[in-house]
Design a protein around this nucleic acid. Structure first.
Lengths: 125, 125
DNA sequence: TGCTAATATTAGAAATTACTAATATGAATC
DNA sequence: GATTCATATTAGTAATTTCTAATATTAGCA
């Protein structure tokens, strides 16, 4: 509907050219759910953030920022921003301890990471 | 709920196991695995591509490009580029049939989408 | 009370992404 | 063979992202 339609003769007609009717496909997610999923996925879809999350999830206890900086190889500011984004995506929780902040992966994050490991494993469905 | 709403009420338990040395955290993924995961995730982390994949996965049969265009509300070129990216991320397969191309979700994609549904469901771990 | 350490925030530059318009390709139809 | 249709590719641009440097904040310590 917000299609440009500036093309040659391309209007929104049902084109019954053959056996398949070219109609619009559908899915079952609401717009909000889609947006939420994309938020989550795009939070994960960045080297720094993804590796940060893996580092956090890979530790039994929680992890302080200072442990992440050397492993990630970006500036302190970049690490902090990465963690912030993960936090607002609900992928990590944080806890203050004096001057430090400790981060831990949320159950949601754990589950997604497990799914990714699973998929990487390659077993078919 | 580990949601960000509680910005103000951050837990501040002063846990003084002061022997914490600030070393570098670790995880178990190779650099290649990390990169591959990020590729996958960033392929998913975009409105157009994610919705396209949902549309494709939500159909029993496979889906032709022309069915996606009206649903996605972007240009034909953008749809094609989105599908290309999904394809090279291994999230969809494609099949030629005359002038048409039909796309289907790969098992890998199905599993990831299931995991996302699962996580969205909210059941804890 | 000032100093330092750990982290957060801001601003702006550089890199990347995602789109549209235009054009190319390849299959079907005339 | 020319035309048309479905899709892919290319080029260019606008928008977004991600980083660094600089600065702010907050907690412990001298």
């Amino acid at each position: 509907m917000n299609r440009q339609a500036s093309n040659t003769g391309e209007t929104e007609q049902v084109q019954t050219d053959g056996d398949r009717v070219c109609c619009s496909a559908e899915h079952s997610l609401s717009e909000d759910e889609l947006a939420a999923d994309v938020q989550l996925l795009s939070a994960l879809g960045n080297d720094t953030r993804y590796e940060a999350l893996r580092l956090i999830a890979g530790t039994d206890s929680d992890v302080c920022v200072c442990e992440l900086e050397p492993a990630l190889g970006v500036s302190q500011s970049a690490v902090s921003q990465a963690l912030s984004r993960l936090y607002s995506a609900g992928l990590v929780s944080r806890r203050k301890d004096g001057r430090w902040r400790y981060y831990a992966a949320t159950p949601q994050a754990e589950r997604l990471l497990d799914a990714l490991d699973d998929v990487r494993g390659g077993a078919d469905a």
